[in-house]
Structures are given as C-alpha cells and as structure tokens.
Nucleic acid binder design. Structure first.
Lengths: 197, 197
DNA sequence: ATTTTCATTGAAATTAATTTCAATATTATT
DNA sequence: AATAATATTGAAATTAATTTCAATGAAAAT
C-alpha cells in the first residue's frame, strides 16, 4: 500500500472517530462540520473531499454500526432468567470490547429520534422498543416459573432494557469509568424469594 | 384577569410545552424554531414576540426545571441501602407526578453536554456525575455492613444512577408506558446473601 | 365611537451553517 | 527531472437557519 493510501485511510478513520465522538456528546444538529474538521485536524474543504455531506458522514457511521453491532437474542431460551442473563452478558461484553462499540450503540439509539434520516437507514437501527416488547412474554413466563419477581411485565422489561441503555450511554461518554456487572442488571428481574422455598 | 392576559399566558405555556417536547425528542440543535412555532400553532414572528431567541427559550425551560426539580438526598442517612431506596422512591415519585417532571429531567440531563450554554446556567443543572461520585463512600459503607453487594463501588454507583437515568428518559419519551418500581432499581445494589446470616 | 395599545403575520434582513471550487502543495509515475 | 495525479487549503457561493420589522387586525381604554 502506498503512502498516500495509508494517509487517506488514516484521515478517513480520523474523521469518523471525531464525528462519532461529537455526535454522541452533542447530537447531530449541534455538531458542526467545522467542529469535526477541527477535531480531525483538517480544513472543512478536505472533509468534504472524504464525505459528500454531513448527512453522508452520519449515515456512514450508522452503516458501520449496524454492520458491527449485531445483537441477537434467543427468545426461545428455556430459562427466561438465563436468557436475560445471557443478553446482559452479551451486551456488556460488546460495549466493553472496545469504546467504539459503546459509542456506536449510543449513536444508533439517538438516531432513532432523528426525522431527517432516510427510511432505509431507520430500518437498520436496532430499536430498543422492539426488545422491550419482545421481552414481555418471556418475563411473564419467568414469573410463572417463580424465577422473576412479580409486577407489571412491561414495566419490568422497561426497567431491564433502559438500565442497560442508561449504563451503555454513560460508558460511551466516559470510556474510562469502571463498567458495571451484567449480573447486577439481572438482579432487577430476579425473584429473591425463590431460593428459600 | 383580562382576556388578553389569558391568551398571552396560554400561548406562553403552549410554546414552552411544545419546545420541551421537541428538545427532548430531537435535541437542541435539531429542533428548529419553525418546528416549535408550528407545533404551538403560531407564526415564527409571534414566537419571537414571546422569547427573544431560541437560546432564551431554552434557558427559560432550564430555569423552570431547576426551580421545580429540586432533588435533595441526605447522604448522612444511617442505613446506606435505605438512603438509596429513599432516593429512588423520591426520584420515581417525582417523574411519575407529572409527565412534565420526567421531561424536564431529561432536558436538564441533555443540557449538560451543550457548550453553547452560559456558565451560570450550567451551575443550575443537577449533574448526575455528582450523584455518582457522592454515592461511592455510601456504597462502601453499605458493603461493610453487608447491606450492599460486593463489587467496585464506583461501578455500582454508575449502575444505580444510570439505570434511573435510562428509565427516566424512557418515561419522558413515552409518558403512557407503565413506570417501573423504585424497589427494582434498589435490588441492583442489594446484597441477596445478607438475610440468611 | 374613537383612540390606543398590543397581538399577529408574512416577508425581508441577518446570521450561521454547509458546500463548492479555483489555486497550490504534495506525492506518485514516467 | 518532468509530468501527472491527487491531497489540501482558504475563500467564495449557496443554502438554511434565526431574527427583525413594517403593516394589519383585534381587544382594551377613553
């Protein structure tokens, strides 16, 4: 690979990383091209040599995120609580693997509420809403089995997934902070009475 | 009160409510004055008759939020776990009292990362970072007493407060969703082994 | 009823962002 | 070394937002 191609690749990732950081800290609209160019240490003109527009840059990030951040949960797991434990471990494992993953997760969460986004891009976003809905029957089954505490199943689902979402957001914004345990979030759902019977 | 004054008051709150909704859904930068004016069913010109600028409007909201949303936690509580239970109950009580409170909470959380904000305004924002830091010694004390589970105290603090933050955000954006129990979040911290000794 | 005051609009002015581009410097090719 | 290709800049053009304002309509005061 020639010196130029290296430089080119470096610059491209530099832009993407700076942009990702700014987008998750300040949001799409508050992030100015000038800011990104400055953070990536180049002129605005050059940035536009790499990406046609601010929107293209944003979309590129989302595509990368959708590519790398494939979270698959097996909702047919025989033990409901084990499913949530596995999901939490998978999730925390992913956001802990690299600061990039956590940041990407936040970006995609935020992108949901953006109406300037093209419809096909929206399809790529892994909606937290879907996870909340899909988890409800699993929680109900867990309650029947006595694994999961009593209470409104939807509210429990919201508690579980939103806790994960809130923690992920913090880790993305403060990558040096110590990351909570997956188990701790599971104890939101766990029925403490169960073992004593 | 004259008919005009009523109308004036109505319009003002209409603007504030529309703006609050838009700001928490799309963020400050992505929210256009045109959007707010449309949602509040008036011309842009009129909106500027009520608020000098977009920033003034935003600041007004934050001032109102800071006024109404005073969360005080007594960090000298004798039982650490009881303190966190009280904090969670206070918090969920507040965000459940009115959709306005939950929305305001999210607005103020988001405002933190905005650099266009004047310094005195920033002082008004109740930083979640502060709560996380202040809670660490309390958690450590709780661990000594066996009330709180073992693990990195800072990570536990992050888990607790970020869960609350994540849930609050969801409730603000979907006010009709069922709100989780304060107790559930407390079980993030609780030491399950404790009762059997 | 008339006058005055204020609410309201829509369009024009301003400001701020994005995007383009001609000129220049740098690297690669011959 | 000369030439070609492309990276880079800074400034100009464009587009998009905010903000102002003169004109108009509606309510309050006289």
């Amino acid at each position: 690979m020639t010196k130029r191609d290296e430089q080119k690749e470096q610059r491209r990732t530099m832009i993407l990383e700076s942009a990702l950081d700014m987008f998750i800290h300040k949001g799409y609209g508050e992030t100015k091209i000038a800011d990104i160019a400055k953070a990536a240490d180049m002129s605005m003109g050059l940035l536009f040599h790499y990406f046609d527009s601010k929107e293209t840059l944003y979309e590129t990030l989302i595509r990368i995120g959708a590519e790398k951040l494939k979270l698959e949960f097996d909702f047919s797991n025989n033990s409901p609580l084990a499913l949530f434990r596995a999901a939490a471990e998978d999730f925390f494992g992913t956001i802990n693997s690299t600061p990039f993953a956590a940041k990407m997760f936040v970006l995609m969460e935020n992108a949901q509420h953006l109406d300037s986004l093209s419809p096909d891009l929206k399809g790529m976003l892994s909606e937290s809403g879907k996870l909340i809905r899909k988890s409800i029957p699993v929680i109900e089954k867990g309650q029947e089995l006595g694994e999961i505490k009593a209470g409104n199943a939807e509210a429990l689902s919201i508690a579980f997934w939103c806790s994960i979402q809130g923690i992920a957001q913090y880790i993305a914004l403060c990558p040096d902070a110590p990351c909570p345990n997956a188990d701790w979030v599971v104890s939101l759902l766990e029925n403490k009475e169960s073992e004593s019977q």
